[in-house]
Lab assay of single mutants.
Amino acid sequence: MQRVNMIMAESPGLITICLLGYLLSAECTVFLDHENANKILNRPKRYNSGKLEEFVQGNLERECMEEKCSFEEAREVFENTERTTEFWKQYVDGDQCESNPCLNGGSCKDDINSYECWCPFGFEGKNCELDVTCNIKNGRCEQFCKNSADNKVVCSCTEGYRLAENQKSCEPAVPFPCGRVSVSQTSKLTRAETVFPDVDYVNSTEAETILDNITQSTQSFNDFTRVVGGEDAKPGQFPWQVVLNGKVDAFCGGSIVNEKWIVTAAHCVETGVKITVVAGEHNIEETEHTEQKRNVIRIIPHHNYNAAINKYNHDIALLELDEPLVLNSYVTPICIADKEYTNIFLKFGSGYVSGWGRVFHKGRSALVLQYLRVPLVDRATCLRSTKFTIYNNMFCAGFHEGGRDSCQGDSGGPHVTEVEGTSFLTGIISWGEECAMKGKYGIYTKVSRYVNWIKEKTKLT
C-alpha cells in the first residue's frame, strides 16, 4: 500500500490518463441519441435557420407576430419608411378606419389613436360632414345658397324668414311668412316636400332668348283662358290664391305678392273693366268669414305684352289694390325667389296649380277651390304637342294621358313649387288646347323671366 501511494504521488498524470480511459469505455446513459432527441424537440425550422439574422431580410411573422416588435424591426421587413409607417399605425392600436367614419364618399386613412378623412370636392370637416359648395344638395341650405369668396357655403332665406341657429334652416321672422300653410287642420295635408338634388348652379339658368321682337298675326285659340281631375282644397291650404270678379264672377285667378299687390295673367284683364279681388276665398257660393274683398285701382301688364300681336306672350300683369290686405292664416303671400332659384325650383319637376275653373272641358265651374299636382314636361315634348308657338318664356306641365289639367277660369292662378315646406311661385296658368285632352298640356308663363320686374313694381313704400 505504501508503494502504491508513492507511485500516485510521483505520477499524477498517469492516474488522470487511467481515469479518462475508464470513462470513455463506459456506456453513456444520461444523453439520448440524435434521433430520439429530435422526437422530443420537434420544432419547425425557421426561415433563416442556421444563418445569422443580421444578414437576412426581415420576416413579418418572425419579427412582429411571434413577439412584439419595434418600429426598427418592422422597418427591416418593409425596407421602406412609408410602408412601415402605414403598417405601424394599425399594428400599434388597430384600424381606426374600420367603422368607416368618413361621410359623403370620403376616404379614410388610419393613424395612431386617430384617423384622417380625405374629402371629395365640396366637403370638409373631420368626417367630411361639412358642405362647402352650393353645387351639392344646395349646400344643405333649406332655401338659398351662395358661395363666399373663400368658396364656403353661405345660406340665406327669402323675405319674412331668418336663418336658424344651425345656419342652414329657415324659420319665420314674421307672423305670416310667405308660402307657408298655417291653418292647423290643413298642415297635415301639406304636399310632399321637395329635397334639393345635386345641381350645376353655374349652368342652372337656361341660355334662352326671349323672342321679344317676333311679330306674329293673332292666333285663334280655343278655350285658351284655361282644375280638371283635381281635388277639393281645404280652407287655408292655398292662402296665396285669390279669385278675380268682373263682368262675371271667378273669371280668373291670381296670387298675393304682398298686402297691396296681386300677380295674374295679362290676358285676364281689360282696361276700363272694374275688377274686384277676393282673398281668403274657399267656396265661392258661401260666406265663410275668411274672405277679404278689395278693388283694383291700377293694372300693370308687362311692358312687352301686346294682345294685338299675341294674347299669351309675356302673359303676366300686376294688380294694385285700393287697401292693403290683412295677412292671416287664410290670406298669405306666395314666396318669389330670384331668377336663378325660381328656375331651379321649376326644374324640380312638379308643381301645384289651383283655381275655381271648370271641372271638365266646357263644363261647370268649381264651387270649392280645386288643386292638382302636375309634372313638368320637357321642352321637346311640349313643342311636338301643339302647332302653336311655345315661346321661351312659357313652359308645359300636365299629363300625356289627359284627364287632369287646369281649365277655363283658372287662368292667372299660381303654379307653385314647394321647397322644404315653403311654396314659391314658378308659373302662372296661361293657356292650353281644350282641357285635359290626351297628348295636350297646360301652358304656363315662366315666372323666372319676370321676377325682377315683379319685385321692382310691387315694392311697398
Rank of each mutant, 00 (worst) to 15 (best):
Q2N: 10
N5V: 11
M6H: 06
M6F: 13
M6A: 14
P12S: 10
L14W: 13
L14I: 13
L20P: 02
Y22Q: 09
S25F: 12
S25R: 03
A26T: 12
E27A: 05
C28V: 00
C28T: 05
C28F: 00
T29W: 03
T29M: 12
T29G: 09
T29N: 10
H34K: 06
H34P: 11
H34W: 07
E35R: 06
E35G: 12
N36A: 11
A37N: 15
I40A: 15
R43Q: 13
P44L: 06
P44W: 06
P44I: 06
P44T: 15
N48K: 08
E54F: 03
N59M: 05
L60I: 15
L60G: 15
R62G: 06
R62A: 08
M65C: 10
E66D: 06
E67N: 06
C69T: 08
C69S: 15
C69N: 13
F71K: 06
F71W: 12
E72T: 15
E73C: 07
E73S: 12
R75C: 13
E76H: 15
V77Q: 15
E79A: 12
N80Y: 05
N80K: 14
N80H: 06
T84M: 03
T85D: 09
E86I: 15
E86R: 15
F87D: 15
W88Y: 14
W88H: 15
Y91P: 06
D93R: 13
G94Q: 09
D95H: 13
C97D: 02
E98K: 11
E98L: 13
E98V: 06
C102H: 01
C102G: 02
G105L: 07
G105D: 07
G106A: 03
S107I: 02
S107A: 10
D110N: 14
D111H: 09
D111C: 15
I112E: 15
I112V: 11
Y115L: 05
Y115G: 09
E116S: 14
C117M: 01
C117F: 01
P120R: 08
F121K: 09
F121V: 13
G122C: 02
G122S: 08
F123W: 09
F123N: 14
F123E: 13
E124N: 11
E124P: 11
K126M: 04
K126P: 12
N127S: 09
D131C: 10
D131T: 06
C134Y: 02
N135T: 13
N135V: 11
K137N: 07
N138Y: 06
R140I: 12
C145L: 01
K146Q: 11
K146G: 04
D150G: 11
N151C: 04
V153S: 11
V154W: 09
V154E: 05
C155G: 00
S156Y: 12
S156C: 04
C157E: 00
C157D: 00
C157T: 00
E159A: 07
G160S: 04
Y161S: 01
Y161L: 02
R162F: 08
L163E: 02
L163F: 01
A164C: 03
A164R: 07
E165G: 11
E165D: 10
E165R: 06
Q167I: 05
Q167R: 05
S169Q: 07
C170Y: 00
V181C: 06
V183I: 12
S184V: 11
Q185A: 03
Q185C: 11
T186I: 10
K188L: 05
T190C: 13
R191Q: 08
R191F: 07
E193W: 12
E193N: 11
V195Y: 05
P197S: 08
D198I: 06
D198K: 09
D198T: 11
V202Q: 09
L211A: 04
L211P: 11
D212L: 06
N213G: 14
N213H: 05
I214K: 12
S217V: 09
T218E: 09
T218I: 11
Q219P: 12
Q219H: 09
Q219A: 13
S220E: 04
F221I: 11
N222W: 07
F224R: 05
F224G: 09
V227L: 05
G230H: 11
E231P: 10
E231I: 11
A233D: 05
K234F: 10
Q241G: 05
V243M: 04
N245C: 04
N245Y: 12
G246H: 06
V248F: 04
V248K: 09
D249G: 11
D249E: 10
D249I: 05
A250F: 06
A250S: 09
F251M: 06
F251Q: 07
F251D: 04
C252E: 00
C252L: 00
G253V: 13
G254Q: 00
G254F: 01
V257E: 00
N258Y: 00
N258D: 03
E259H: 06
W261G: 00
W261C: 00
I262R: 00
I262L: 03
I262G: 01
T264S: 05
T264C: 06
A265R: 01
H267K: 04
C268S: 00
V269S: 03
T271A: 10
V277F: 00
V278D: 03
G280K: 02
E285H: 06
E286S: 10
T287G: 12
E288N: 07
H289L: 04
H289G: 12
R294S: 01
P301E: 07
H303A: 13
N306S: 08
A307S: 12
A308M: 09
Y312E: 03
N313Q: 14
H314C: 03
A317P: 00
A317E: 01
L318E: 00
L318I: 04
E320V: 00
E320F: 01
L321T: 02
L321Q: 00
L325I: 02
L325H: 00
N328Q: 02
S329I: 04
T332N: 04
I334Q: 01
I334M: 00
I334S: 00
A337G: 07
E340P: 12
Y341W: 14
N343T: 14
F345D: 01
L346Y: 12
G349S: 10
G349W: 08
G349M: 08
S350G: 14
G351H: 11
Y352V: 08
Y352R: 06
V353H: 09
V353D: 02
V353N: 02
G357L: 11
R358I: 06
R358V: 10
H361E: 09
K362C: 04
G363R: 04
S365R: 14
L367N: 11
Q370W: 03
Y371E: 12
V374N: 02
V374D: 01
L376S: 09
V377M: 14
D378V: 04
R379T: 15
R379H: 15
R379G: 15
A380V: 12
A380F: 12
A380Q: 09
T381S: 12
L383I: 13
R384I: 11
S385T: 14
S385C: 13
T386D: 13
K387H: 12
F388C: 14
I390K: 09
N393Q: 08
N393C: 04
N393E: 12
M394V: 05
M394G: 03
C396M: 03
F399H: 11
H400D: 11
H400S: 13
E401V: 03
E401D: 09
G403H: 15
R404W: 15
D405L: 15
C407G: 04
Q408F: 09
S411D: 15
G412I: 07
P414G: 14
V416H: 07
E420C: 11
E420R: 15
E420N: 12
T422W: 01
T422R: 03
T422P: 01
S423R: 13
S423E: 02
L425I: 05
L425M: 06
T426Q: 01
T426W: 00
T426P: 00
I428F: 10
I429A: 11
S430W: 03
W431L: 04
G432C: 14
E434R: 04
C435Q: 04
A436N: 14
K438S: 14
K438Q: 12
K440D: 13
Y441P: 14
Y441S: 04
I443C: 11
Y444T: 01
S448H: 13
N452M: 08
E456Q: 07
K457V: 14
T458I: 06
T458L: 02
K459T: 15
L460E: 08
T461M: 09
